[in-house]
Design a protein around this nucleic acid. Structure first.
Length: 758
DNA sequence: CATACCGCATACTGG
DNA sequence: ATGCGGTATG
């Protein structure tokens, strides 16, 4: 029984059937590349008898990996086949898996720790202090950036030092060399090292490489336009024996050059693999004709681009709405109001909507407006649960338990909670560690009998060492182990002892973390602490996006790559926001082209409706800016756009008529656009005066009699479920919600909450 | 050694 | 606006 491929179009089918030899699939936005990737693997397994064990599929995110695995399972189940043994992973996850198996070959142990950017920065800081390099003269972020860029290029510290001529480069080279030494002694790798070390493992150990080459007969890499040089070299090594390499990508969606992605990897594929089959997927199945036309028109302005035009058989669809807001709060209210209106008038669900922005800093005001309007939402990315200090403290304990050499984690927890081991003591221990070339923890053990320390410090250090030994002795069920470690650490007790709302909240966050442990344990076979730490290191917020709950999704445009929604809002389309300031002034203009590709990505996420908004005035970073509308709005043919907002009201004396005219998209259909003639500008001014919020569905809410709330009351929120009142300041409530563990600020009379009991 | 406060830098995207 | 590091003080 053959896999049913009849649903594929001719180009898709060609790609699915081109299993042998190199294959380049140039897949435009919404052209069904995920279908191609999954059907091709299903075809390999179901029709060609390839074992799942022989297949490696590299994806851009864990979420994409999980989805591909799921889709394949579903497809193959009908044929009595499965995906067991197949590797569907991101580059980073694949590298970790390879490195765990053979860490010893590189001088690490399999318990090595993965340092995230925060840990890594602390290490950079330590190194610069050790080398007495002044951070004021040599900014640490510049050093970090240079080292990271060098690693992405697979340039070693010694190669970097040899090439460095400018003072900052020379210093960066010194730091790079020492940083790597110290990572090695800490048995730790940063994110870049995962790639670099995996490359080293494969290129320096022919037996290891050969084993993978023999195993993985078929290899595919998605989002190839966003691979960096290290990933490119790893790919080529793995594919070299058989050349059954499929890469999929779209040069118009390359948006990660700032972290080393190199467009040449996809542009030069045919030169790298002269026998390559090339398939172009140019039919878009996702978006309305107008949305696609807008996307095509915008990206066509990039001068250095392979010309192409996607087409679609989809209906024309609604015009694209552009909204000029008075300010960022008005913009947010407009979005919340439109969501409620479409939910009401078009019977849409909240999950149909996504709001994109260029920078995370824009999310706050959007969040605020959605909250006030009672629209359930979820922010993906940004400052996450796992970035909170108390959670990082817990994770540092766990890392130090798994990897005793992890000096960064040890230094984080040695005096957290307070144990009277201060900076002076730690510095002295570090000196000993450096002089004798021993691990930080071993130097700590020596310090107990080192009379250069005060006797109080010696006792405190002895206590800390005893604690670490105890923590490492715990065995058994993962959740029990984590709870025991946290309990013995004293973190929760010390927070509770503060007796402030804030500290209590942070203690609750730690308890919430136990729920994460339980979730992990439930979802994995044989969960142990080191597997959990690895999962934590590589997980992202995006991975937890589910379709179970009904909510509007908020995220940056970068995060939105690969996703699609029926209704998309792109907020903050202003010069210096999107395109971002730093790209406008970039010397080569490449930055601006990447911004335009980013706009292209944003637009092509939309299936049915697209809203582009910008604000007359915007407070950001503590001051107010007045930016002209984004050039990207002006690049959309005006027949596809309908404009509304304060500009269409003819606000006098603001100078906005002029700006609108200059861009050509305003003044056409002003006030009569897809908003159905609804003018949100007036709602905005009302809200400012405190008599009402937003429009649409929010209208009824303020009419509810205002209940009174007291600390400790249990409430139920329309979107967030059950919670407890943590504080009351006039009309402003802080409510801690059970489901998320987060504390939200809500306003009495506006927030959709009901008191359950007091 | 801990804490409080002040001045200053930082402020885009992320595995 | 915010957070961090440095410094003065207890």
């Amino acid at each position: 029984m053959a896999i049913d491929l009849t649903s594929l179009n001719p180009a898709q089918l060609e790609a699915v059937l081109a299993t042998e030899g190199p294959l380049l699939v140039l897949a435009g936005a919404g052209s069904g590349k995920t279908r191609v990737l999954t059907y091709r693997i299903a075809h390999l397994i179901g029709d060609l008898g390839v074992s799942p064990h022989e297949i490696l599929a590299i994806t851009f995110t864990n979420k994409a990996a999980a989805e591909m695995r799921e889709r394949l399972s579903t497809l193959l189940r009908e044929y009595g086949l499965g995906v067991h043994g197949m590797w569907v992973l991101t580059f980073h996850a694949m590298c970790v898996r390879m490195l765990r198996a053979d860490a010893e070959l590189l001088g690490f142990t399999r318990n090595f720790t993965i340092y995230d950017s925060d840990d890594s920065k602390r290490m950079f800081k330590d190194v610069m202090r050790e080398l007495e390099i002044d951070e004021k003269t040599y900014p640490i972020n510049g050093v970090i950036h240079r080292v990271s860029a060098a690693k992405n290029e697979l340039m070693s510290a010694s190669e970097y030092v040899a090439k460095a001529s400018a003072p900052l480069d020379k210093k960066a080279g010194q730091v790079y060399a020492r940083y790597q030494q110290r990572l090695l002694s800490a048995n730790a790798m940063d994110f870049d090292d995962l790639l670099v070390n995996a490359y080293r493992l494969l290129s320096e150990n022919p037996a290891v490489l050969s084993a993978y080459q023999q195993r993985f007969r078929y290899l595919s890499v998605d989002e190839y336009q966003d691979t960096n040089h290290a990933q490119y070299r790893i790919t080529n090594l793995l594919a070299a024996a058989r050349n059954n390499l499929m890469v999929v990508g779209d040069d118009d969606q390359s948006i990660y050059s700032w972290r080393g992605a190199d467009l040449r990897n996809i542009l030069d594929f045919e030169a790298d693999y002269p026998q390559a089959t090339v398939v172009k997927l140019e039919q878009n199945y996702r978006s309305s004709a107008r949305i696609l036309a807008a996307a095509n028109a915008v990206v066509a302005n990039n001068p250095n681009r392979k010309p192409k035009t996607l087409f679609t058989a989809n209906a024309e669809g609604e015009k694209i709405s552009s909204y000029l807001a008075a300010d960022e709060r008005d913009e947010a209210r407009f979005i919340a109001g439109e969501v409620e209106k479409l939910v009401r008038d078009e019977d849409r669900r909240y999950t149909d909507f996504a709001v994109f922005y260029r920078t995370n800093a824009q999310s706050r005001v959007l969040e605020d407006a959605l909250l006030r309007a009672g629209v359930p939402y979820r922010i993906v990315g940004g400052t996450r649960f796992f970035d909170r200090a108390e959670i990082r403290d817990v994770m540092a304990y766990l890392k130090a338990v798994v990897n005793p050499a992890d000096e960064i984690s040890l230094k984080r927890i040695i005096n957290t909670p307070k144990r009277s081991i201060g900076g002076t003591t730690v510095e002295r221990v570090e000196e000993v560690a450096r002089e004798r070339d021993i691990a930080f923890e071993d130097a700590l053990r020596l310090a107990v009998d080192d009379d250069r320390h005060r006797s109080g410090a010696q006792t405190a250090i002895a206590g800390f060492i005893a604690l670490m030994d105890e923590l490492r002795s715990f065995e058994g069920d993962l959740r029990d182990v984590v709870e025991l470690i946290v309990a013995r650490s004293g973190l929760i007790e010390s927070l509770e002892a503060e007796r402030t709302e804030e500290a209590t909240g942070r203690a609750d966050n730690i308890r919430e973390f136990f729920g994460v442990v339980a979730e992990f344990a439930a979802a994995h076979e044989a969960p142990d602490l080191s597997a959990f730490m690895e999962w934590l290191a590589l997980r992202t917020d995006l991975d937890t996006l589910t379709e179970e709950d009904d909510y509007v999704t908020l995220m940056t445009v970068h995060t939105a790559k690969g996703l699609e929604y029926p209704v998309v809002f792109v907020a903050g389309l202003e010069e210096s926001i999107f395109p971002h300031q730093n790209s406008i002034f970039a010397s080569d203009g490449g930055g601006l082209e990447e911004e335009r590709r980013l706009a292209y990505v944003a637009i092509t996420r939309a299936r049915e409706r697209l809203y582009l908004s910008h604000a007359h005035a915007r407070s950001i970073y503590g001051s107010t800016q007045h930016n002209p509308p984004s050039r990207f709005i002006g690049e959309i043919p005006s027949e596809h756009v309908s404009a509304s907002g304060v500009g269409s009201l003819g606000v006098s004396g603001s100078g906005w008529e002029k700006r609108g005219d200059r861009h050509g998209t305003f003044g056409h259909g002003a006030g009569t656009g897809a908003g159905g003639g609804r003018v949100f500008g007036s709602g905005a001014s009302k809200a400012v005066s405190g008599t009402g919020f937003g429009s649409g569905g929010g209208a009824k809410k303020p009419q509810q009699p205002a209940e009174t709330f007291a600390v400790g009351d249990v409430v139920d929120h329309k979107a967030f479920g059950r919670g407890r009142v943590a504080s009351v300041k006039g009309d402003a409530l802080e409510i801690r919600f059970d489901r998320t563990g987060e504390t939200k600020k809500l306003l009495v009379g506006y927030a959709p909450i009901v008191k359950i009991k007091n």
